[in-house]
Write a protein that binds this DNA or RNA. Structure first.
Length: 424
RNA sequence: GGAGAAAUGGCAGAGUGGUCGAAUGCGGCGGUCUUGAAAACCGUUGUCCGCUUACCGGCGGACCGGGGGUUCGAAUCCCUCUUUCUCCGCCA
């Protein structure tokens, strides 16, 4: 969430920039400022009363020690009312703090000044394109047909075992999944990321810290037996490693990578673009996460984009990088680049990665700070993450684009991992 | 799942109702000594909030696993939750 300082000192700017996200913050910001003022007034009063009580308690203790029992008892009665007042103020303070927090979490992150205005993905800006779109013959098959033809992906079986959106990979298909995971992890480790294998379920505090709660509660699978959520992305556990942590500035940037399955309910998205692997409830993804000094976080964002770009290039996929417009930007992000690859049989661009800078929005929620050498003050760090990469749509594009009369060609970079050059 | 024990600062560990944000040791930081380093010695060393301050800082409040309670006063007593350890059971 945004810091109170940010809102207090730049309220006009916050309101103005949130308009780029099509978010009208005017009223909420007003209420936040009023509630904050009230909170501080109550705290000042509580503190001074508490200070008095503390002082008197010490006096009473001293009186008892001097055996002045009557005086001590009189003093005890005298503080009774003070205690009542403090109790009332305390409750009020608590309520006000809670209310303030409830208001704060409804404010999305402020977009970076470079974010273009817009309402939907149609207003996103193409930053860069690369690779070549293959010319396929008219009878080219979409990946769901290829998956069936070569016994790589079984959607019906997944439906039997679990339900729609839980595909089963088989044979060379399963092997391709494993190869991609290993390839992506190796590339990340080569780029200096530490490999992490986190839990696939997280508690409420973790889901809250990265912003899944309360904003996207309906998108996560929740257990009914324990208060845990199935992770929608490795971002959640991996970023939360640093919840309530104070780092030394020299430790930055902190770079972690993790492969995990991801679980998403995808409530509200049906019909459009959900065929085959285009949208599923469980999928595999390698995520890269960085914690960086605020002065350098945008350089880091570029570095991460470059990393992801290197991956799609090695996979020889036609791609484009788009900067999300305000309306398409997620609740917690300040700036996001999406990667899309072209699936030549479907003739569709498929989103395979999302690389974002959250600035201090997540860090503030999870109290992730760092300290400059020699300084006593702590500052909020910046958090960033990106998919590197999400598998299903990569597989869709690989299968579709590389189909030949002899079978499906595996890009050279992947062959050491698959152990075969051709699916046939 | 059952029984017992425990949770204190970066770490180890003392503290069982007041003068305790907390002894001591280690670690960290600054210094003395040294050509340099080590050792030794001296000093310093948590976080958050509020008020104040041009700045250094000052004052007040909170925090000894989380939440609640008893008391004029709680690290210390009580309740509750969580976690860890030991034993038993189950188990890949």
């Amino acid at each position: 969430m945004l810091t109170l300082k940010q809102i207090r000192e730049n309220s006009e700017e916050v309101i103005r920039r949130l308009k780029v996200k099509n978010f009208d913050a005017e009223e909420i910001v007003g209420r936040i400022l009023a509630t904050d003022e009230r909170r501080r007034a109550i705290q000042t009063e509580t503190d001074s009363k508490q200070s008095e009580l503390n002082r008197r308690s010490k006096e009473i203790g001293a009186l008892f020690k001097e055996k002045k029992i009557d005086e001590a008892n009189a003093a005890r009665e005298a503080v009774a009312r003070l205690k009542e007042e403090i109790k009332t103020l305390h409750n009020e303070l608590h309520e006000t703090e809670e209310k303030l927090n409830e208001l704060l979490v409804t404010l999305p992150n402020v977009p970076h000044p470079s974010v273009p205005p817009g309402n939907s993905d149609e207003d996103n800006v193409i930053v860069r394109e690369g690779g070549e779109i293959p010319g396929l013959p008219g009878e080219a098959l979409p990946h769901w047909d290829l998956g069936k033809k070569h016994a790589l992906i079984d959607f019906d079986l997944g439906n039997k075992l679990t339900g729609a959106g839980f595909p089963v990979f088989t044979g060379q298909g399963a092997r391709l999944v494993r190869a991609l995971i290993s390839f992506f992890l190796d590339e990340a480790v080569r780029a200096g990321y530490r490999e992490v294998l986190p839990p696939l379920m997280v508690n409420e505090a973790s889901a809250y810290a990265t912003g899944q709660l309360p904003d996207k509660e309906g998108q996560m699978y929740q257990l009914s037996t324990d208060p845990y959520y199935l992770i929608p992305t490795a971002e959640v556990p991996v970023t939360n490693i640093y919840r309530d942590v104070i780092l030394d500035a020299e430790e930055l940037p902190v770079k972690n990578t993790a492969y995990t399955p991801c679980f998403r309910r995808e409530a509200g998205s049906y019909g459009k673009d959900v065929r085959g692997l285009n949208r599923v409830h469980q999928f595999d993804k390698v995520e890269i996460v960085q914690i960086q000094h605020p002065d350098r976080s945008y350089d880091t964002l570029e570095e991460m984009v470059k990393h992801v770009e290197g991956l799609v290039q090695k996979l020889e996929l036609p791609y484009r990088i788009v900067q999300l417009c305000g309306g398409d930007l997620s609740f917690t992000s300040a700036l996001t680049y999406d990667f899309e690859v072209y699936a030549a049989a479907q003739k569709k661009w498929l989103e395979v990665s999302s690389v974002s800078n959250f600035e201090s929005y997540q860090a503030n929620r999870m109290k992730l700070r760092f300290r400059e050498k020699g300084s006593k003050k702590t500052r909020l760090a910046h958090t960033l993450n990106g998919s590197a990469l999400a598998l299903p749509r990569i597989i869709a594009a690989l299968l579709e684009n590389n189909q030949t009369p002899e079978g499906i060609r595996i890009p050279a970079a992947l062959v050491p991992y698959t152990g075969f050059e051709m699916i046939s």
